[in-house]
Design a binder for these strands. Structure first.
Lengths: 257, 257
DNA sequence: CAGTGGTCTAGACCACATC
DNA sequence: ATGTGGTCTAGACCACTGA
């Protein structure tokens, strides 16, 4: 194991592998490739070098590089197609743009494709709950966005989205101007942040006055509240959001594996 | 004793490949191994033959068998430990007994370990909603069980569990007698049914009179309702359940990948 | 100690996509 | 025709487990 062309050279300092079990080569390759994707060396939607090329570059066998890329593909970071190549996952492309949306109507359609209307976008201090999710100091600067999703012209879901200014500075104008149905496309295009993992917590409670007003229901009506933290490829929390809806027409769907 | 129960057609013998792309060998091996596990050839908690043995048996290379087993492990069907072997996943053993429970208290503990009290167990016709989930005819025979989970001596979750009599005949006595915290252990031990996949739908609504009574809350209080269908290794729906709880102390947690 | 899974290599042939 | 990923082989060495 002397090849060791692997060294990010940047932030990390793992040139002293004296641990009894150093990270397997394919894991080192994977970590290195992830960093290169993160750094923007290969843009979303475009292809990585072939296994052969990478194997030559790292001076490893093709099988080792293959295993690294296979894990990346399994995590949804890249997608592979025989005869074509390996492509960086893109929310902008047609590759599963709304894969994190688990709210469906009763006919099994995703609540994401229909009309979305923006209620407000404003820069403000992050409230305590979002700050906790984003692992930020209380009242750090950020942007808050409230919007509404519809189903057959009826409002069914209120979303409050909070983004920290550190990772996504000055995002409000783009949100106001473009009102994109997928925030994650924007994060990818403008900030090179690829959301690869989300954690969601669901609760039931009564609708607040504002929610009742927006959803056209009575205050106190039982609603489902889904709180989400979205993490970037690097593992940093980049977005906090809360989704609230009355569940006679929609539900939250989860399938194991 | 089976040599080449699979059918790849060899390298140069009569290659009557009708299909343009026959299933890869490792997929055939996987399917065959899954069947053998299903048939009870290796009991849950005990080990499969080693990769070497299986490779010899199937007359394939170790790498091919390895790939089959790796996929089985990824699906949670077996678990592998270096130096020990490959073991059939067991709910009875200590291998992730409550891995499908996604309800947690606010300190991150699973709502499954504390006391469970049974309200009633009875054989009866399956109600329409459960029948739909279990893919059974309306009012097919079955067993219904209502129980209560506690958190620090307070009731926090009502569960109604419905099982069809076709797959799990005469299960009521065992439920009454043992009142097991994990139904899936019982299904595995007494019916050779291994639950490997669940689909859950969450909604918010007001508590019914009975639920309010059991949970010690007011009727109409917003509660989270999680409806679950559990599928066996063979893909058949074996259990329908609904879990209802007030969510000031608990929540539903979901992590992508 | 012998046996297990985990890693790694260096080849081979294939189906497929693109030019 | 060329290059891609997908499959498959037949070895090798390692760390870990258990007797």
């Amino acid at each position: 194991m002397n090849r060791r062309a692997l060294d990010p050279g940047g932030s990390s300092s793992d040139s002293d592998d004296l641990r009894p079990s150093p990270l397997p080569l394919y894991q080192q390759v994977k970590r290195h490739l992830v960093q290169r994707v993160l750094a923007g060396e290969w843009k979303p939607g475009l292809s990585l070098p072939s296994e052969q090329k990478l194997a030559q570059e790292y001076k490893l066998s093709q099988g080792t590089v293959r295993k690294a890329i296979e894990e990346m593909a399994q995590e949804g970071l890249v997608s592979r197609r025989a005869g074509r190549g390996t492509f960086v996952t893109s929310h902008s492309g047609n590759y599963e743009p709304f894969r994190f949306h688990r709210l469906f109507d009763n006919e099994g359609r995703r609540i994401a494709t229909d009309a979305v209307s923006f209620v407000r976008v404003e820069d403000k201090h992050i409230h305590a709950r979002a700050a906790a999710g984003l692992e930020l100091d209380h009242s750090a600067p950020g942007t808050e966005c409230v919007r509404l999703r519809h189903l057959e012209d009826e409002p069914v879901l209120v979303e409050q989205i909070v983004l920290g200014a550190r990772l996504t500075p000055n995002i409000a104008p783009a949100l106001e101007r473009e009102r994109p149905p997928s925030i994650y496309q924007l994060l990818e295009r403008d900030y090179n942040l690829l959301v690869t993992r989300v954690v969601e917590r669901a609760r039931a409670r009564g609708a607040t006055h504002e929610e009742a007003d927006l959803l056209n229901i009575a205050e106190g009506t039982p609603v489902l509240e889904v709180e989400r933290v979205a993490y970037s490829l690097g593992g940093e929390p980049v977005e906090w959001r809360i989704m609230v809806g009355e569940t006679s027409k929609i539900h939250y769907l989860q399938t194991s594996d």
